[in-house]
Simulated assay, not measured.
Amino acid sequence: MRLWAFDRLGAVTSQSFDIHENALMFISVVLGYLWMAPKDLGFDPTIYGEKGSRYVEITRDARPERYHLDDVIKRQRCVAGRATTCWEVHGDKSGQSFVVKDSWEYKERPEEGPLLKKVTDAGVKNGAEYHYHEIV
């Protein structure tokens, strides 16, 4: 058996071992994965779940807001890269629909949020309207 761990930058692997000769190691591995927190298994820690619903929370203008994830619009499936996912969401209180773009950030690229805010503040028509952004 050999274990692999992947993230947006690449992969790390363990030394291989024979599960028949080292049963204790095999049991430790299985139990380790069973006891891992969802974040450690690769689930997004900024997406919460409650009663079969998933949502994200933000604080805008010093007030907390909750947006329920309705559906995936587009997901870029990849092992390495930004793994961009666009979600259709609706506000908890307003019911208004939005699109949330969730992706990994590369520090050498400019942030998209401030650029989109600048375009929205300038009154550019027929483009995405800025609502909020956050680096987690």
Rank of each mutant, 00 (worst) to 15 (best):
Asp121Tyr: 04
Leu34Cys: 06
Asp7Phe: 01
Ala80Gln: 04
Thr120Tyr: 01
Val119Gly: 00
Ala5Ser: 09
Asp71Lys: 15
Pro110Met: 13
Phe98Asp: 02
Leu34Trp: 04
Ser16Ile: 08
Gly91Asn: 13
Ala122Cys: 07
Val79Asn: 12
Val119Tyr: 00
Asp70Asn: 08
Ser97Lys: 15
Val124Glu: 02
Glu111Cys: 05
Gly127Lys: 05
Leu9Glu: 12
Lys107Arg: 06
Asp71Val: 09
Ala23Ile: 14
Tyr48Cys: 13
Val72Arg: 10
Asp70Ala: 10
Glu65Ile: 04
Ala5Asn: 06
Arg109Phe: 14
Val89Phe: 09
Asp70Gly: 06
Cys86Ile: 09
Phe6His: 08
Glu134Ser: 07
Leu115Ala: 07
Ile19Asn: 09
Ser14Cys: 02
Ser103Cys: 14
Asp18Cys: 12
Ala128Lys: 00
Lys39Met: 15
Arg77Ala: 08
Ser14Gly: 01
Val100Ala: 13
Trp35Leu: 14
Glu88Asn: 03
Gln76Arg: 07
Asn126Thr: 00
Tyr33Arg: 12
Lys118Asn: 11
Glu50Asp: 07
Glu57Ile: 09
Asp40Ser: 15
Ser16Tyr: 10
Val100Asp: 02
Asp121Arg: 01
Thr59Glu: 10
Leu3Asn: 07
Ala83Lys: 08
Leu116Ser: 03
Lys51Gln: 14
Glu105Ser: 04
Leu116Gln: 05
Met36Tyr: 03
Met36Phe: 03
Ser14Ala: 04
Tyr132Gln: 05
Ala128Asn: 01
Ala37Val: 01
Ala83Phe: 04
His20Thr: 10
Leu41Lys: 05
Phe17Glu: 12
Glu134His: 11
Ala5Gln: 06
Leu115Arg: 01
Met1Glu: 01
His68Ile: 15
Trp35Lys: 14
Ser28Gln: 10
Ile58Leu: 12
Ser103Leu: 11
Ile58Thr: 13
Asp61Cys: 04
Val119Lys: 00
Ser94Cys: 14
Glu65Pro: 00
Ser53Cys: 11
Glu105Val: 03
Thr59Pro: 01
His133Pro: 01
Val124Tyr: 04
Arg77Met: 07
Thr46Asp: 11
Arg66Glu: 05
Asp92Ser: 13
His20Trp: 08
Pro45Cys: 08
Ile73Lys: 10
Arg8Gln: 12
Glu65Arg: 07
Asp7Arg: 01
Arg54Ala: 12
Val99Ile: 15
Val12His: 07
Gln15Phe: 08
Lys74Pro: 00
Gly10Cys: 00
Phe6Glu: 08
Asp102Asn: 08
Leu41Met: 04
Asp92Phe: 05
Cys86Glu: 13
Ser16Leu: 09
Gly113Ser: 09
Val79Gly: 10
Cys78Glu: 14
Asn22Ile: 02
Gly95Phe: 03
Asp102Gly: 05
Arg2Ala: 09
Val12Lys: 09
Phe43Met: 14
Val124Thr: 07
